[in-house]
Amino acid sequence: MSKITPITSSRDLTSLLTTHTTVIVDFYADWCGPCKTIAPIFAQLATSHAQPKVLAFAKVDVDASQDIAQTYSVSAMPTFLVFRNGKVADTIRGANPSALRAAVAKASSSKGAPAPAFASGGRKLGDASGAGSAPVPGAGGAGAGADAMVRFFGLYLTTLFSFDAYAAAEASPFRVGGRR
């Protein structure tokens, strides 16, 4: 039995969105080659990750349900929308298996609840009293301001261009306190 719910009306979609925390919807067309290519991957993900009342998978034929596609501004096929608590949280345009797998993994691991941005209470810049932190080299010397600025921008750029900012900050050579 398929774990994918076919959506044929706005009422079907609304019903699914209100009964599940997270819903991943595949907007496709029968004539679309990339849609046919990624369909088995979507089906496999639905089979392995669907959870009653938590995570559901659905398909909308954009030719048969043009009103739904228009409501969500779907202009390319396939388009995958990830709904959390009834609102669009993520959009994947095109047949991108790795992005689809990542979105499904994120949706199934979060169980619909937003993940906390930071696991610890954090530290203030320049605060050397935090657990495991060491004084900033050169603090108090003539080049303290320049050293702090280099570390700040180095850490900022390191975390800005990474998928896991916390892990990148921990591994960064610009991290205050050095490596653990």
Rank of each mutant, 00 (worst) to 15 (best):
117 A>W: 12
28 Y>H: 14
98 S>D: 09
27 F>K: 07
28 Y>I: 02
3 K>R: 10
71 T>R: 15
166 Y>T: 14
115 A>H: 08
115 A>T: 04
128 A>M: 11
123 R>V: 08
139 A>P: 02
170 E>S: 09
170 E>T: 08
76 A>W: 02
27 F>Y: 12
127 D>S: 14
99 A>G: 14
6 P>D: 07
167 A>R: 15
88 V>L: 05
134 A>F: 02
90 D>R: 15
121 G>Q: 10
137 P>E: 09
167 A>E: 11
72 Y>R: 10
7 I>E: 05
57 F>N: 08
93 R>Q: 10
28 Y>E: 05
90 D>G: 04
112 G>I: 05
104 V>T: 09
144 A>Q: 15
80 F>W: 10
10 S>K: 15
19 T>Y: 00
138 G>D: 06
142 A>W: 08
5 T>W: 04
168 A>I: 05
179 R>E: 01
136 V>M: 15
51 Q>W: 00
124 K>D: 00
105 A>Y: 09
29 A>W: 05
167 A>I: 01
94 G>Y: 06
162 S>Y: 05
86 G>A: 09
13 L>D: 01
152 F>T: 13
30 D>C: 02
129 S>F: 01
22 T>W: 06
160 L>T: 08
110 S>Q: 13
52 P>Q: 09
118 F>A: 12
84 R>K: 15
95 A>Y: 12
141 G>H: 09
46 A>K: 12
163 F>C: 06
54 V>H: 11
12 D>A: 06
148 A>T: 14
55 L>T: 01
22 T>N: 07
103 A>D: 07
1 M>A: 10
146 A>V: 14
121 G>F: 02
141 G>E: 13
82 V>S: 03
132 G>F: 04
123 R>Q: 04
11 R>D: 02
170 E>I: 07
172 S>C: 02
117 A>S: 12
82 V>H: 07
124 K>R: 13
63 D>T: 13
165 A>S: 15
143 G>S: 15
77 M>F: 12
175 R>P: 00
162 S>A: 15
28 Y>G: 01
92 I>F: 07
51 Q>G: 03
134 A>L: 12
89 A>M: 03
90 D>I: 02
135 P>N: 13
67 D>F: 03
60 V>W: 11
25 V>H: 05
96 N>C: 08
132 G>H: 08
93 R>M: 08
169 A>C: 05
8 T>N: 13
148 A>D: 12
95 A>S: 14
106 K>F: 02
126 G>K: 14
71 T>N: 08
51 Q>P: 01
111 K>S: 06
54 V>L: 14
104 V>K: 12
25 V>D: 01
92 I>A: 07
54 V>Q: 14
87 K>I: 06
134 A>N: 07
115 A>M: 09
86 G>Y: 11
72 Y>C: 03
19 T>V: 00
68 I>E: 03
14 T>I: 03
62 V>D: 02
163 F>G: 11
123 R>S: 11
134 A>P: 00
49 H>V: 00
139 A>N: 11
79 T>A: 04
150 V>P: 01
78 P>I: 03
157 L>P: 01
62 V>M: 08
153 F>E: 06
18 T>E: 10
142 A>D: 07
164 D>K: 14
148 A>C: 09
89 A>L: 06
81 L>G: 04
43 A>W: 03
76 A>Q: 09
20 H>L: 00
155 L>P: 04
95 A>M: 11
55 L>A: 00
46 A>L: 04
168 A>E: 04
48 S>H: 10
